[in-house]
Design a protein around this nucleic acid. Structure first.
Length: 354
DNA sequence: AAATCTCGCAACCGCTTTCAC
DNA sequence: GGTGAAAGCGGTTGCGAGATT
């Protein structure tokens, strides 16, 4: 025997709740209490499914709900809880009085998961995907809204990250990088590896001074590669223009030519290539590592694997760096990390050996 | 100014678990 | 213990807002 539907769906209203419906539901529950959701709509005079009424009450109408932005402290707790509980949103939400599982889940999906994935790519030795599809300038956007969080701090994050990089790496490359790098540079916990600054927007923010002197020449005209994808990337000194090659021709003094240049090649357009998916698909077709691809296909269906990353991330030596970033008063303690996300194309993983 | 596009979130869907009889 | 209803839960979708071209 099949299960009966929770309610008669014929003639029921769907979609956004109106203020009038909210008021009816609120008054009814205040008078009669929660429960009996199946019969509630009829008794209250609502043309809604009982399930819908329950959801509306639990997520938005309850008096004890805490509305407003998720604080940084809450963010950290969510991340930690998710590392141990996975997608058990109701359990996670149980740690936040006034927050709902739906709210936590949405926040995770729209904010935190992407940050985690970005961080993962920065910190994962094996993940070598060169996310050039999101390098600003290479990927010419036709429009679209910038992330709200990014909009707020549009002019601050790179400078913050620069400080972060400086603080963690201790040194910064003052000379052009080797023409043919052989190994990726990745962030480490031991402050040993200088981190290449993001290619995009560098020219907008970085000024050649102090130990950053020379960086613009490194960025302008640099050629690098991704050891696993095999693509070579060069901007040939052109601001905000990047080129992809299947092969480079080496001569005296480094790269002297390129084969099969594809201007903006897989950078291409955003169409069907969100977050550099095209690159990943190519890699998959070429026998690439499936593990490297997960971040772009599903938000969080591999949290077990992510546990390691969370640990790495949360155990990072944040001392001092956090204070430094706070000084910027940006409201985003880890904005150097957040805002280097793939949407904005600030991927650090350029595949350099410093 | 209009078109295009992305983002965030409210709401829905379907499955599982719990409860009452 | 079996059955059906209700509640709970997590994944997914649809759409309005608004930035960008």
């Amino acid at each position: 025997m099949g299960r009966a539907p929770c309610c008669e769906k014929v003639g029921l209203k769907r979609g956004r709740w109106t203020a009038e419906e909210d008021e009816i539901l609120r008054r009814y529950i205040q008078a009669n209490g929660e429960g009996s959701w199946r019969s509630l709509p009829k008794n209250a005079g609502l043309l809604r499914c009982g399930k819908s009424c329950r959801l509306r009450w639990i997520n938005y109408l309850r008096a004890d709900l805490k509305r407003g932005n998720i604080s940084r402290e809450e963010e950290e707790i969510i991340i930690k809880l998710h590392s141990s509980l996975g997608n058990r949103w109701s359990l996670i939400a149980g740690h936040f009085p006034g927050r709902t599982d739906n709210e936590i889940k949405n926040y995770w999906n729209s904010h935190l998961s992407r940050r985690i994935h970005s961080f993962r790519r920065l910190n994962n030795d094996g993940a070598s995907i060169l996310d050039v599809g999101n390098i600003v300038g290479g990927c010419k956007r036709k429009g679209g809204r910038t992330r709200r969080s990014a909009m707020k701090k549009n002019h601050t994050y790179l400078e913050i990250r620069r400080e972060k990089v400086h603080a963690r790496a201790g040194t910064f490359p003052t000379k052009p990088l080797p023409q043919k790098p052989t190994q990726k540079a990745v962030l480490t916990k031991d402050n040993e590896v200088p981190v290449a600054p993001s290619v995009d927007k560098v020219n907008d923010v970085l000024e050649p001074q102090g130990e950053f002197e020379g960086m613009e020449s490194w960025i302008a005209g640099s050629t690098t590669t991704d050891s696993e994808s095999g693509f070579f990337v060069s901007n040939k000194g052109l601001e905000n223009e990047f080129f992809l090659y299947d092969e480079v021709v080496e001569g005296e003094g480094g790269v002297t030519g390129f084969i099969e240049e594809r201007e903006n090649g897989i950078l291409g357009s955003n169409e069907g290539s969100e977050s550099g998916v095209t690159v990943l698909q190519e890699e998959r077709e070429n026998g690439g590592n499936e593990k490297d691809i997960e971040w772009c296909s599903s938000l969080d269906n591999s949290f077990e694997e992510m546990g390691y990353l969370y640990g790495e991330w949360l155990d990072w030596k944040w001392d001092g760096v956090e204070d430094m970033v706070r000084e910027e008063d940006t409201g985003e303690r880890w904005s150097w990390l957040w805002e280097s996300n793939n949407e904005e194309g600030n991927c650090l993983a350029m595949g350099h050996e410093q």
